[in-house]
């Protein structure tokens, strides 16, 4: 089936799956899961270097920036200023200017601070960043982020790491319907059917970390997610049948023996 390539910030990707690198046992497992997922875009976090212990390995020794589009995030930032500083530092690492913007508003839910996210997005777009913002499943916030010049909007399906799946499919459908930039579901996915559902709705892509890294078999779940993205996307393109309350027979009504 013919599909258009996944365009993001002027680049095209074959895979519509973006994966995170948090919560894995070690870098070897991270690499194996990323490979199994088929993802071409990989998120990372920016953190202070451990000054006293320099023996630690570097994540980029396992996830080659020449092979993958590295997508630094601003996880843990609670103000626009912190997020902007983090993005500027990330760009200096030499992996390009695509960033996942998140400005957290609340520690328990990890829901975004919508106003601060929009404020940071405006500054970062002006500075030439390709901004992919994590945001609530709020159609108005998504519109404002698109107007601010973000390359995509990334509404959450459910709280980060919750595995609850798509809590508000109707909001998500509205966001997709009105979208002028790609819509990437970010956060809250639990298993493959959640992923397939998002793609069936017409989401352009999906970002997954916890559901893969936290699975009993992360490599197995990475493969399942890859297939779910493909199945969901194909079902979207193929066009599902209308939902009806009553049955419609699939076998001919006539010619039944009596």
């Amino acid at each position: 089936m013919h599909d258009t390539p996944f365009e993001l910030g002027g680049r095209t990707f074959r895979s519509r799956l973006i994966v995170g690198t948090g919560k894995y046992r070690d870098f070897a497992e991270t690499r194996a899961a990323v490979e199994a997922s088929g993802a071409e875009i990989v998120t990372v976090a920016v953190r202070r270097v451990n000054i006293s212990d320099r023996t630690k390995e570097n994540l980029l020794d396992y996830i080659d920036p020449k092979r993958y589009q590295i997508l630094p995030n601003t996880a843990g930032c609670y103000t626009a200023e912190e997020a902007i500083r983090t993005c500027r530092l990330a760009r200096e690492m030499g992996v390009g200017n695509m960033i996942k913007l998140e400005v957290i508003g609340d520690q328990r839910t990890l829901f975004p601070d919508v106003a601060a996210t929009i404020e940071a997005a405006r500054v970062l777009v002006k500075e030439g960043f390709i901004v992919l913002p994590y945001i609530t499943d709020d159609p108005v916030a998504c519109l404002k982020l698109a107007e601010a010049g973000c390359a995509a909007v990334m509404p959450l399906a459910a709280p980060i790491g919750s595995g609850l799946g798509i809590r508000n499919p109707y909001n998500l459908r509205i966001i997709i319907e009105q979208a002028t930039v790609p819509v990437i579901v970010d956060a809250g996915v639990g298993t493959a059917s959640d992923t397939a559902e998002a793609l069936e709705f017409g989401c352009d892509g999906i970002l997954i970390n916890s559901a893969i890294a936290g699975a009993k078999d992360p490599i197995g779940m990475a493969t399942a997610m890859k297939l779910a993205v493909e199945a969901g996307r194909m079902a979207f393109l193929a066009g599902r049948i209308e939902q009806r309350l009553y049955a419609t027979a699939s076998s001919p009504l006539g010619g039944v023996i009596r």
Partner: peptide, 10 residues
Amino acid sequence: VEIVDFVGGG
């Protein structure tokens, strides 16, 4: 002075 690098994250 802040010195940072990349770590695993989502």
